[in-house]
Structure formats: C-alpha cells, structure tokens
C-alpha cells in the first residue's frame, strides 16, 4: 500500500532524509521512532505529498505521489505534527470543509465526530478548545473520509493518559484494515499499537522489525534474571558461575542471605533456567524470580541513537579544540 524507495530530502546543504526505503501493507501499523530532528516528520511529509522529495519515490497503492499528487492524496488521511487548525471556524464547520473537499457527506462528519469523541464541542469555536480537543479535531479530519492510508505524526502528543489510551486503541482498531504510519517518542505506544517499527536516526533507517525483533536486539535480551535467597550472596554468585554455559553474571544486589542478578549464557535457550532451578533445588535455596529477559525497546533505542549523539558531541568537541 505504501511503498517508499530510496527517499532523500535535502534542505540546502543539510541532508535531512538519506535514502530511506520501507513498505507498509494493509493491516500493518508501522511505528516511526527516532530522536528529535531525526527526519521522521520530513519523511512523513514527503509520503503525504506536502514536501517534494529531492530524490526517490513514494507510491500510494501504486500511484506516485510526485506524479499524481491529487489522486494519491485522496487515499491518505494525515495528522500533521502540531495538529494545525483554522481557529476561526467551529469544529463541525471545519470538519464539513474537510469533508466537502474530499467529496464526503455530512454523515461522514457526524461519524468522525462520534469516533473522536467531539460531540460536546462540535459547535464550539476551535480557538477556544483545549489541546486535547484540538488534537482530536485534527485527527477527525484525517479519518473522516475513511482513508486506506493514515499518516499520523505524533498523534498522542499533548493528550492526557486516558486520551492517549483512546487514541492508541483507535489506531489499533483502524490498523486492521488500513495501512498506518505513526510517529511517536513514547516507546510503550509502539509495543501497544504497532505491528512493526522503524527507528530512524540522522535521516537514515537504523532498525526495522517487529517490536519483538527490535527488543531482541537489546543487550539485555535473552539474559536470565534471577533472585535467590537462602545463602550468602557471594556464595550464590559463585554457584551460578560454576554452572555450564554461564559466561558472566552481573550482580544487581547481594546481601548475607540473598542474591539478585543477571546471568549471561553462551547459549540462549531454556537449559540455563533449568540448571538454575536444579541448583536451587539441590542446595535448598529459595528461588524467588527466574525470568528470561525479552529486552527493552528503550534500551535498543538508546543504544542506537545515543551512540550517534556521542559521536556528534566528540566531533563537535574536536572541532572546538581545533
């Protein structure tokens, strides 16, 4: 449905997006992650046809956004980053304008108002709305024509926790029969609503996969988290070290009668957890926690993007010294 091929965008000498490629199929919800200024919004703006790409192609359901922008835009619903709205209009007149331009009827406006919980403010002027309502009004204009493709730039920004949950559920529900791209800074949202995620940094895609696959790239992924009592911490530590396949043990806390830590193994399988369990059974220890770590998305995010920030800082410091 959405096909992006080697998409690049330069603003003067600055390369904002560098050869980004990805595809989103019907039924997929793609999470777009990345630090501020990574190129997320620029990429989304090119997909929606707002910014012309410097090079590369964007196709929406086989239609080129550059060559047939009007046809392509008909298939897209777009929520821009700061949810801009015509503040001199009321909610319903603004949505009627959006519907009219897309050739839709007033019944579509009514259902968008209902879906986005805008009933209480529908006759209110937009400049008197709270941030949450403004955001939902903009979201309503993006979905009122029931588009096949939804591009949402930080759809939960500025919403309270309840509203965030509502929007996430809405995205998840709509994702069943649409192709959705949404960007966010909140990593738990990706796990909650996305079927796939892309991490973009300094204009390039640095990771692409399901949330589980991405979490698997975390350093903590596959480690065995253990918490054992019944013996001095140092004793438990040496017992665990003596198990086969154990390459390292990270001590998180250790007392006279307990130990908590993470166990590295040369093999990522369940045999280590069996070995730890048997160790506790044989020595009469109490096993309080035994868990294979899935890895954390924010660790992966930080590992990938902080590394770049460090390089940036070092380069900058180097230049200043010169």
């Amino acid at each position: 449905m959405i096909s992006v091929k080697t998409l690049s965008k330069s603003f003067g000498p600055k390369l904002a997006v560098d050869s980004v490629s990805f595809e989103v199929k019907k039924g997929e919800v793609l999470g777009f992650l990345g630090p501020n200024g990574a190129g997320k919004s620029t990429t989304m703006r090119m997909v929606t046809g707002y910014l012309p790409p410097t090079s590369g192609e964007v196709e929406i359901d086989g239609i080129s956004v550059v060559e047939n922008p009007i046809q392509a835009k008909q298939k897209i619903g777009y929520l821009p980053e700061s949810a801009p709205l015509y503040s001199d209009m009321t909610v319903s007149s603004f949505l009627s304008f959006a519907a009219e331009i897309r050739g839709k009827k007033s019944t579509d406006v009514e259902s968008a108002i209902e879906t986005c919980f805008l009933e209480p403010v529908k006759n209110q002027s937009i400049d008197t709305l709270s941030k949450g309502y403004r955001h939902r009004t903009c979201l309503a204009q993006s979905i009122l024509h029931d588009p096949e493709i939804l591009i949402l730039d930080e759809p939960t920004d500025g919403l309270d926790p309840n509203q965030k949950q509502e929007v996430r559920n809405l995205i998840k529900r709509m994702g069943e029969d649409k192709a959705i791209i949404f960007s966010t800074h909140i990593l738990e949202e990706v796990e909650a609503a996305c079927t796939r995620a892309i991490i973009i940094d300094q204009g390039s895609v640095v990771a692409d996969g399901t949330p589980e696959q991405l979490k698997g790239k975390s350093k903590a992924a596959g480690l065995l988290s253990v918490s054992i009592t019944g013996m001095a911490g140092s004793g438990i530590l040496s017992e665990i070290r003596s198990l086969r396949d154990v390459t390292d043990v990270i001590e998180l806390s250790s007392t006279d009668s307990s130990f908590k830590g993470m166990v590295h193994s040369s093999k990522k399988n369940n045999s280590l957890s069996e070995d730890v369990f048997n160790l506790c059974k044989d020595k009469g220890l109490l096993l309080q926690e035994l868990k294979i770590e899935e890895g954390r998305l924010d660790d992966v995010f930080r590992e990938i993007t902080v590394a770049d920030t460090k390089i940036d800082k070092e380069t900058k410091a180097g230049k200043e010294e010169e």
Binding site: R45, T48, G49, Y50, P69, I70, Q71, K73, Q74, I76, Y78, P80, S82, P84, L85, Y86, S87, A98, I101, R102, C138, Q141
Partner: peptide, 14 residues
C-alpha cells in the same frame, strides 16, 4: 504561521 498550509496542501487539491 499557524501551519494550516500543511493541512491545506495535503488535501486532494492543487
């Protein structure tokens, strides 16, 4: 100034 140009120009009009 308000960013509505992004909204207007991503609607299916030239």
């Amino acid at each position: 100034r308000t960013g509505t140009i992004e909204l207007l120009l991503t609607m299916p009009i030239s």
